[in-house]
């Protein structure tokens, strides 16, 4: 078997953002389901949170390749 430990590290580092994304959208769906008129307020917040979590995952991806 051959390969680099970088990929294992990337796999581990992807767990965090994956859970974070799940939590963010779970909370968003919950909020909209309880109070549909709050959608306009919640949507930007949810997507910004998602972007922040996703940025960390992509950091991991890029660093796994370049380091």
């Amino acid at each position: 078997m051959k390969g680099t430990l970088n990929l294992v590290g990337y796999g581990l580092s992807a767990i965090g953002p994956a859970i974070a994304t799940g939590l963010i959208f779970a909370a968003y769906i919950n909020g909209v389901a309880r109070q549909p008129e709050a959608r306009g307020v919640l949507q930007p917040i949810a997507f910004l949170g998602f972007a922040l979590a996703e940025a960390l995952a992509l950091f991991g991806l890029v660093l796994a390749f370049v380091l």
């Binding site: 959608r39 997507f47 992509l58 890029v62």
Partner: peptide, 22 residues
């Protein structure tokens, strides 16, 4: 309505940012 496409575009923007400036 931003909702439908936002999640997809966000990933595109993040990739562009990291790849270009990185």
């Amino acid at each position: 309505d931003a909702g439908d496409g936002a999640a997809w575009s966000i990933v595109s923007y993040l990739l562009s940012g990291l790849i270009f400036w990185g």
